[in-house]
Design a protein around this nucleic acid. Structure first.
Lengths: 238, 238
DNA sequence: CTGTATCTAAACCTAAAGATTTAGATACAT
DNA sequence: ATGTATCTAAATCTTTAGGTTTAGATACAG
């Protein structure tokens, strides 16, 4: 363990960029800072993985645009190393989808190559302190993508989910138990009703959902965001 | 439509807070700013919804902690109004889960009541420009929650998903068709094999996944991130 | 108070699903 | 060459699942 009180201690950074010139350029820039040190560099994610194990850097600055192994996969592999290395993604492209996916797999920051180098240095220092941050210019794009992904889900659910609205509360209970993998006998026992009653309910469900069998009904429910009344109550916590 | 070129145009804000004193306090603070105007205020989300329709404010500043209708539901309802109103969440609690859910349903910013009032004014101006932003102090919490939600999914899939690894490629094909709602006859026709062969495969699937019927097998597949080989190829795009 | 919706449940039947055994045809590795 | 895994498929049987009709008991609204 390194002592943080040691004033000689610099932030140990490992660089990954398939372009050797970029690699050297960034290295130069970082080494201008007197509190950050580039301890290793690689033009290839596979080599980098070994270097990470060897040098155990504080931070990995990774180019996302690499031919052999793409940055996203590389980040995932680094994260599954369960070392304490924190990855900062570096790329030329301001793509909300890429940003979203990089943050999703565990990146601690996302910096564009077109940004002032101070942005990167800033990010390195912030991330070193355990923070996760996006530059102001990228947050809106990220959140728009984030919110949109949920909106689309909702739309799909509302569009087709209208059939679910036709179910009575008892039918919802039955369908809920079916989505838990219970057969008719189980459902009858759980709801304290006869098996023939369950069949009646199930047949009504089939007609309302326009499906032919239990499995299709369960699939319809899952694909259209079915949540039974009972569950809704426990989920909707303020 | 208001003209944005009009230099008299102030940012029109609607306030919602169930606590009347807070409401008036925030109103005072905002009215100190000469580019922001509180056009309406309500202590109740339902009243607020009507006021929004009436006054069509640019921005809604909403307290998240309300007794009758909670803030999350209120935001959802405002968003489904498909007006251009932008909601800023305001709360006393620094809770990552709340922040995540507020942003998820469409909040454009999330400010703590404990923060300096300049933070709120700042957020109002940023959001007015179409930006989505979180104060620096909240981003780490948000992203930790965000990344964690994906990690948990993965863990659940890897832990229990091991049984899926035992399936042969043909069994995967059969299971894939079952998860699409096909019955045995369908599967037989699609794969150009006899129905008895399908039954053999299905029985092997049941044993390997330790389930008793088709529906349970499908549920197991869906709950454990089953993706058939064929689908994987089209999904894994760099 | 009467029609409508819902929940219940029976009888009856057909079709599909699930369990089990056996076995031929490949293919692949030791 | 021989064992192992996989895919195929049949026969046979039991158990669910699914379809249809009918009907009693509430409950609730017009």
């Amino acid at each position: 363990m390194r002592s943080c009180s040691d004033f000689n201690t610099k932030i140990r950074v490992l660089l990954i960029d398939d372009n050797y010139n970029h690699l050297m350029g960034i290295r130069e820039l970082i080494n201008l800072e007197n509190d950050i040190d580039v301890v290793a560099a690689a033009t290839n994610a596979n080599i980098a993985l070994n270097l990470i194990k060897k040098y155990q850097p504080d931070i990995v600055v990774m180019d996302m645009n690499m031919p052999e192994k793409d940055g996203l996969t590389a980040i995932q592999e680094i994260e599954s190393l369960d070392s304490n290395v924190k990855v900062i993604a570096l790329t030329a492209y301001d793509d909300a989808d890429l940003i979203f996916r990089a943050m999703k797999v565990g990146a601690k920051s996302y910096i564009l190559k077109t940004m002032a180098s101070s942005q990167l240095m800033n990010a390195i220092r912030e991330v070193m302190q355990g923070k996760i941050c996006l530059p102001q210019g990228l947050t809106t794009g990220f959140f728009e993508y984030f919110q949109n992904s949920f909106k689309q889900k909702e739309k799909a659910q509302n569009a087709a989910g209208s059939l679910l609205a036709d179910l009575t509360s008892r039918e919802e209970e039955v369908l809920d138990l079916l989505t838990q993998g219970h057969n008719y006998k189980d459902v009858a026992n759980i709801l304290f009703i006869s098996e023939t009653t369950v069949k009646t309910h199930v047949n009504n469900i089939f007609q309302k959902l326009q499906v032919n069998d239990r499995t299709q009904a369960v699939l319809y429910a899952l694909n259209n965001g079915f949540v039974s009344k009972r569950k809704q109550r426990t989920t909707t916590v303020a």
